[in-house]
Amino acid sequence: MQWGSASEFFAMGGYGLYVWTSFLATALCMVWEVLALWRRRAAARAEQRAAMLGGTDETAA
């Protein structure tokens, strides 16, 4: 372990801005991708459901 304190850890030897921007950007991209896929899945399923239920309405009438 090379960190004496939490502030030393976050300072990253003066490179904190660069190091934390890199890791934060990577984390945000991954979280965003997962959330976007979640929404896409919900939308695809909703559309599928609407198509099926809509189709039965027509045949029922």
């Binding site: 899945r41 695809a44 399923r45 599928q48 099926m52 039965t56 309405d57 045949t59 029922a60």
Partner: peptide
């Protein structure tokens, strides 16, 4: 799902039951 819209692929066939009930 977007390209082929075959609900029978789904591991949870709730949509099919719903569709059948609506019929």
């Amino acid at each position: 799902v977007e390209r082929e819209s075959l609900p029978t692929w789904d591991d949870k066939p709730a949509v099919i039951h719903e569709a059948v009930e609506a019929r």
